Amino acid sequence: MDLISKPVAYAAAFLAVFASTNQAHANEPGESQQITPSGTQRTVGGSPDFFTGSVRVEPVWPADKNINASGGLVTFEPYARSAWHTHPAGQRLWVVSGVGLTQEWGKPIREIRAGDVVWCPPGVKHWHGASARAAMTHLAITGNVEGKNVTWMEKVTDDQYNAR
């Protein structure tokens, strides 16, 4: 499988599982599918208050009355990373492409690759980003508690990032 078709295969597998687990959740009477057209949500740069390096955030969907979790596609260029942070309801990261790094406070840095899924439990201090040699893109699915989905903390220092 070449590098182009591999992410497409992962996406197809993810959507097949997602569809099969959601068949029991029929729409309410009078509801219908909603489509958010591609390109209608603005991609933004990751705030320098919460990220180091070049980061792009593409909103995919907001939390709403149907699903109390937001989704965003986040691309980290080499060396880019988030600050330390926690999530009150946890977060799942599905690595779509590239090679990244993630670390829980007090534990070793771990490498993550396309196809990997990372579970960040509620309240666990962690960071994630690209490796030094490759960009990394992940789909972040983040739960909300009382409208809040993240608590940002201090930035990851270069020494912490390079401690491998």
Rank of each mutant, 00 (worst) to 15 (best):
T43W: 09
P48A: 14
G129I: 10
P37Y: 14
F51E: 01
E77F: 07
D49T: 15
G129P: 05
C120L: 12
P122H: 00
Y10P: 00
E28Q: 07
I112A: 13
W119V: 15
W61V: 09
V156P: 01
H126K: 04
V57G: 11
A135K: 05
A9W: 04
K65T: 12
G143I: 09
G53Y: 12
A132E: 14
A135C: 08
A26W: 01
E104C: 14
I4Q: 06
H85V: 02
G123N: 05
R56E: 13
A130T: 02
N27M: 08
L73V: 07
P121T: 01
R81Q: 05
Q41T: 13
N144F: 11
W119F: 10
E111Y: 08
G30I: 09
R164L: 00
V55T: 09
S38P: 02
F51P: 04
V55L: 08
Q34F: 07
H138W: 06
I35T: 14
P78H: 06
V17Y: 04
S5Q: 06
A13C: 10
V95T: 05
L101H: 02
F50V: 00
V95W: 02
S131P: 06
E154P: 02
G71I: 01
P7E: 11
E77W: 15
V55G: 00
W61N: 06
N162M: 14
W94H: 12
N27T: 02
E146C: 10
A140F: 03
L93C: 01
I67K: 14
A11E: 08
G71P: 08
A134C: 04
P59Y: 14
A135N: 12
W94N: 12
V8L: 14
M153T: 04
V44Y: 02
A13F: 05
K125L: 03
D2F: 09
G30E: 00
R164N: 12
G90R: 03
G115M: 12
D49G: 08
T52A: 15
E111T: 05
P122F: 04
I35G: 05
T43I: 10
H25T: 10
V17M: 08
L139S: 03
H87I: 07
G100S: 03
G115Q: 07
R81F: 02
V118Q: 05
P62T: 06
R133L: 15
R42F: 06
A163I: 14
R42P: 06
W61E: 07
F76P: 01
N162P: 03
D158G: 13
P88H: 01
A135Q: 12
A163V: 02
A11D: 09
A16R: 13
T157I: 11
F18N: 12
T86M: 05
G115C: 09
V57I: 10
V44N: 08
E111Q: 11
P7C: 06
E58M: 12
A9C: 06
D49H: 13
R81E: 09
W119Y: 15
T52G: 11
G71W: 03
L73E: 12
V118L: 13
G30T: 00
D2A: 05
H85L: 09
